[in-house]
C-alpha cells in the first residue's frame, strides 16, 4: 500500500493551548512539537504527565485540533480531511474503551461494523482477534466480569479490528501485571514486524520504550527535547552512571563529589546522588573516599550502563522515575 520507509505519521510545529480557567493564564500544552514515524516502525513518546504526549495523540487521531501546525497520518492531512483519516487509524485510549454490558465478542463485532466491515467479516475478524489475544474462553462473557489485563487486551483488539495502518496506544500497559504487560509487548512487536503497522505509543515506562520502540522522542513542556533510536540516545552519553544512595540527605555530599576527578553531570535529589564517569568501576573507590572524608554515610552504590533514564535526566534535567513517582503520589 505504501512504500516501506515512507513517513506514516508526521506532526510538525504543533501548538496547542488550553484555557487556564478562572483568570489563570492559558496553558501551553504543545509548544512547537515536531515528530515523525516511518511506516511500519514503533515510535515511543516518553515524558511525564502533562508533557504533551496525550495532546499529541489527540491531534493525530482527529479528536483535537491544534492552534497551529500540521499533522498527517498515512499520508492524509488529519486537519483538512479528518473523516478520511479515521478509516486508517486505530486508537487505544488510556481508559478502557469497551462496553462493560456487552460481551467481548459483541464489542468486537460492533466495532468492526462501525469501521465499515460487513457483519460476516466483522465476525470472522472478531474470532481471529479473540484467539490471538487469548480471550477465546471469555469471548461470550460480559466485559464487566473481565480482569484488568483481559479488558486491556480487548481494548487493543478493538483498536485493531479494522487493520489500521497507524495504531495509537496511549499508555497501553499502565496498571497491568508483568505477565499481561509482556504479552502486550510481544503483540505490539508483532504488529510492527509482521503486519507492518506503524505504532505510536506514549509511555511512562522507560523500559517499555527501550524494548519496543525503533525511535524514542523525549517530550518535555510540549516540545521534543531529543529523539533517536534508544541506542543512539544512550551512545550520546559517554561512560557509566554512578548512583549513590546516602543513609540520609547531607549538605556536604555534593561539594565532596565535585572534588572527585573524572565525575561529570553530578546531581543530587534528596538522599540520592547521580553522576557519570568514563569508568564506573574506577570512580567508585574515589567517590566513597570523598564521601567518607566529608563524614557522609553511604547506604548503597550502583553502577550502570547508560539507560534511557540517564538520557532523560541529561535532557530534561531531572530523573524520570522520581517525577513519575511524584506524579503518582
Amino acid at each position: 500500500m505504501s512504500t516501506p520507509r515512507a513517513t506514516a505519521l508526521n506532526a510538525a510545529d504543533l501548538v496547542k493551548t488550553y484555557p487556564g480557567g478562572r483568570g489563570a493564564p492559558p496553558v501551553r500544552a504543545l509548544d512547537g512539537l515536531t515528530v515523525q514515524a516511518a511506516s511500519g516502525s514503533v515510535l515511543a513518546l516518553l515524558g511525564r504527565n502533562g508533557a504533551g504526549k496525550s495532546a499529541t495523540v489527540k491531534i493525530l487521531t482527529t479528536l483535537a485540533r491544534p492552534d497551529s501546525g500540521h499533522a498527517s497520518v498515512a499520508g492524509i492531512d488529519v486537519l483538512r480531511d479528518p473523516d478520511r483519516a479515521r478509516h486508517f487509524i486505530g486508537l487505544i485510549a488510556q481508559k478502557s474503551s469497551s462496553d462493560p454490558l456487552a460481551t467481548g465478542r459483541e464489542n468486537l463485532v460492533l466495532a468492526g461494523c462501525i469501521q465499515g466491515l460487513s457483519r460476516a467479516d466483522a465476525q470472522v475478524r472478531a474470532r481471529e482477534l479473540l484467539d490471538r489475544f487469548d480471550l477465546g474462553d471469555a469471548a461470550d462473557r460480559l466485559v464487566r466480569t473481565y480482569s484488568g489485563g483481559m479488558a486491556r487486551k480487548l481494548d487493543v483488539a478493538i483498536g485493531l479490528v479494522h487493520r489500521p495502518q497507524v495504531l495509537f496506544l496511549d499508555e497501553p500497559t499502565t496498571g497491568l501485571d508483568p505477565e499481561a504487560r509482556a504479552q502486550l509487548w510481544a503483540e505490539i512487536g508483532r504488529l510492527s514486524k509482521v503486519e507492518h503497522t506503524t505504532v505510536l505509543l506514549t509511555t511512562h515506562y522507560l523500559e517499555e520504550a527501550d524494548q519496543l520502540a525503533d525511535r524514542v522522542a523525549i517530550i518535555d513542556a510540549g516540545r521534543v527535547v531529543v529523539d533517536g533510536t534508544p541506542d543512539e540516545l544512550k551512545r550520546d552519553l559517554r561512560g557509566d552512571s554512578v548512583q549513590v544512595d546516602l543513609a540520609a540527605a547531607s549538605q556536604a555530599a555534593l561539594p565532596a563529589l565535585r572534588r572527585v576527578t573524572g565525575l561529570r553531570d553530578i546531581a543530587a535529589d534528596g538522599a540520592r546522588l547521580r553522576a557519570r564517569a568514563d569508568s564506573g568501576a574506577h570512580a567508585v573507590p574515589a567517590v566513597l573516599a570523598a564521601l567518607d572524608a566529608a563524614g557522609v554515610a553511604v547506604a548503597s552504590v550502583t553502577i550502570a550502563r547508560p539507560s534511557l533514564d540517564d538520557v532523560y535526566l541529561r535532557h530534561v534535567g531531572r530523573a524520570f522515575h522520581d517525577q513519575t513517582e511524584e506524579a503518582a503520589a
Binding site: K58, T61, T62, L63, D83, R86, H87, I89, L91, A93, Q94, K95, S96, S97, S98, D99, P100, A111, I114, Q115, G116, D155, I158, G159
Partner: peptide, 14 residues
C-alpha cells in the same frame, strides 16, 4: 466520556 468509549467513537468513521 468517563471510559474511553467516546474518544474511540469520535476517532472512528461514525
Amino acid at each position: 466520556m468517563e471510559r474511553g468509549v467516546m474518544d474511540r467513537l469520535l476517532a472512528s468513521p461514525v
